[in-house]
Amino acid sequence: MLQFLLRRLLYMIPTMIAISIVAFVIIQLPPGDFLTTMVASMAAQGEDMDQSAMRALEEQYGLGQPVHIQYLKWMQGILFRGDFGDSFGWNKPVSDLVWSRLALTFVLSLASLLFVWAVAFPIGIYSAVKQYSIGDYFATFIGFLGLATPNFLLALILMYIAFKFFNQSVGGLFSPEYTEAPWSWGKVADLFAHLWVPVVIIGTAGTASLIRIMRANLLDELRKPYVVTARAKGLPEWRLLFKYPVRIALNPFVSTVGWVLPTLVSGAAIVSIVLSLPTTGPLLIRALLQQDMYLAASFIMLLSILTVIGTLVSDLLLAWLDPRIRME
């Protein structure tokens, strides 16, 4: 088990390096850099940039130097000083901006994941056991509907309904009195009271696909000979179902975290933009549109790393659940 853990951790290192490179390169793709954008936007507002300040910035980030030098400078800052560079759009170090938002993104994604599981698992089992029943068709249909509705559309519709019929706003993660308040139990409670709306919105598509996966897995397992063995032993159907096929179908279900998590993080980004939640989404899009490169790259990188870590956790969970993987 320990060996398994170590091997998985080792695998992660090249993945993380690759992620950081990809994040950085994407940000480098557009012509020009943030300095030129900044100069242009300042010029548009009729201002001029101080030449010496420009020099200093160019020096600090190695602008004008080859991309790999810029990348290395950036990485050096992150690894040795925890410095992700500065956000020019906010005039602050990136690290001041990302962590709280990343934490909320994490909470939101995790809550969505739990929601997705809690809903998909029982419905998937029901759908498989009662295959072709009315309930199965209904679940399948709702599932398809959930898959077909873009997250943001659902968010818009909910917002519209809340606004039109309840005259309420569903945006945000906190009530106004807590928005700027320091963390307290009250604020945590407030967070959870607000959290369910985005969680349900983000979770819909994932729930729909997980129901289908659970159903398919379980249907496969139900046809396996060991089920017949267990039945021939005289086990009651329900006990049999949960001890064997459901338990075994749980493994591939858990391993879906690997791709459910990226979709949830994606969903969280876009839903947060619509609902203007204080997570990474809205900041990321602003950063991208303004070519605020270090901020955008840091977000893309950290979100991806978060996902990779989530996948690692699910792999460990899977190893714990499945002796075949554990003993490999």
Binding site: P225, A230, A232, Y244, R247, I248, N251, D322
Partner: peptide
């Protein structure tokens, strides 16, 4: 009455 099957590979649960 009890029964044994053709496939000893798959007739037992792999994770118990």
């Amino acid at each position: 009455i009890s029964m044994i099957f053709q496939e000893p590979m798959t007739s037992l649960s792999p994770i118990h």
